[in-house]
């Protein structure tokens, strides 16, 4: 599980790659929470490289999203593969996290 950040104008983009599950969610959660509290208000998770996410991984994302919300920020997600999308839909997280098919769509929606 890897998380790398980059900046696209005023949006902080975090690229997630690998498997986000019970074994990897600890360090991933620490990093996502750090990102959520670092002062950025527009945060986009690009999950193109994410193979799958289990409920432990969803929790990590939801906790970060809540933290960001508490700092008046917004978390969005883009480029989910079919499995990740399905998990987010079934778990009801897709309605909270504003999914976008492409990074361009997501960046535009922040404006």
């Amino acid at each position: 599980m890897e998380i790398h950040t980059r900046r696209v104008k005023d949006v902080l983009v975090a690229d997630l790659a690998g498997r986000l599950d019970s074994r990897t969610c600890g360090p991933a959660s620490t990093e996502l929470n750090r990102i959520a509290q670092a002062g950025d208000r527009k945060v986009l998770l690009n999950v193109a490289g994410l193979e799958y996410v289990s409920s432990a991984g969803l929790r990590a994302i939801l906790v970060a999203a809540k933290l960001l919300l508490a700092h008046n920020g917004t978390l969005k997600i883009c480029q989910t593969n079919p499995t990740v999308k399905q998990v987010m839909e079934f778990s009801g997280t897709s309605s909270l996290l504003d999914l976008h098919p492409t990074e361009a769509d997501a960046l535009e929606s922040f404006a």
Partner: peptide, 20 residues
């Protein structure tokens, strides 16, 4: 699953997801 983010319960998703 309809609660807004601020009130959303973080636990209890696992078995629900498995059943889905």
């Amino acid at each position: 699953l309809n609660a807004p983010l601020a009130q959303r319960q973080i636990g209890g998703l696992g078995i629900h997801l498995v059943r889905s």
